[in-house]
C-alpha cells in the first residue's frame, strides 16, 4: 500500500508530467484557455492513460516478450494500441453515455497524439516488466492514472492563471503563448519545492 501512495505523490507532484517531465505540452498550452475545457480534457486524459498503461503492459508481457519482439515492435504496437483504444472508447461512450460523450468526446481524438500517453506507457516499462504479471499491470495502471491526475492538476491551474491574465496589461510581444510559457516557468519553479520528498 505504501508503495502506491509513494507512486501517487511522486506522479502528481514530484514528477509531474507537464511541469517536470515536459510531456503533453501541446494540450497544456492549447486547451488551457478555459477552466471547463481544461477539466474535460484532464478527465479524458486520466481515463485513456489508465486504460493504455493497462493494455500496453498486458500486450508487452503476454505477446511481445514471449515472442522476443520487444526490441523491435514496442513503439509500433503501443502507438497502434493507443490509437485503437481511443477510437474504441469514443464509439462505446457515444453508445452508452451520450452525456459523457458530449463532455469528453471532442477531446478524445486529440489524445491519440498526446505524447504524455505514449510517454506514460514507456516510462517505467522496463522496470515493471520484470515484476510478475498482476503486480506489473496494477502498478503500470496506477502510474497512468496518477500521471493523468498530475496532468489535470497542472492543466487546471494553468487555465485559472490564463483566465486571470485575459484582462492583465501584457506587453504585445508577450501576449498569447509566450506569457503562458513564462507562467509555466513560475509553476514549475513552485513545483520544485516538492523535490526530494519522495
Amino acid at each position: 500500500m505504501k508503495e502506491y501512495f509513494v507512486l501517487m505523490f511522486g506522479m502528481i507532484f514530484v514528477q509531474n508530467f507537464v511541469l517536470n517531465q515536459f510531456l503533453g505540452i501541446c494540450p497544456f498550452i492549447g486547451v488551457s484557455k478555459k477552466r471547463d475545457s481544461a477539466f474535460g480534457m484532464g478527465m479524458a486524459v486520466i481515463f485513456v492513460m489508465g486504460l493504455s498503461c493497462f493494455s500496453t503492459m498486458l500486450i508487452y508481457k503476454l505477446v511481445l516478450i514471449p515472442f522476443g519482439l520487444q526490441e523491435y515492435l514496442d513503439i509500433i504496437s503501443f502507438i497502434l494500441i493507443i490509437a485503437a483504444l481511443v477510437q474504441f472508447v469514443e464509439i462505446v461512450m457515444k453508445k452508452i453515455s451520450p452525456e459523457l460523450y458530449r463532455a469528453l468526446g471532442i477531446y478524445l481524438p486529440l489524445i491519440s497524439t498526446n505524447c504524455a500517453v505514449l510517454g506514460s506507457t514507456q516510462m517505467r516499462l522496463l522496470d515493471y516488466a520484470e515484476l510478475p504479471l498482476p503486480e506489473a499491470i496494477l502498478k503500470n495502471t496506477a502510474l497512468g492514472i496518477f500521471g493523468g491526475v498530475g496532468f489535470t492538476l497542472a492543466l487546471y491551474l494553468m487555465a485559472c492563471i490564463r483566465e486571470r491574465m485575459e484582462r492583465a496589461p501584457i506587453p504585445p510581444a508577450l501576449r498569447g503563448i509566450p506569457i503562458a510559457f513564462l507562467a509555466a516557468a513560475g509553476m514549475a519553479l513552485s513545483f520544485f519545492g516538492f523535490t526530494g520528498i519522495v
Partner: peptide
C-alpha cells in the same frame, strides 16, 4: 532544470 526550459522558450518566442 525544468523551469529554465519554460523560461528560455517563452522569452525566445516573445
Amino acid at each position: 532544470l525544468a523551469p529554465g526550459g519554460f523560461l528560455t522558450l517563452g522569452l525566445f518566442m516573445a
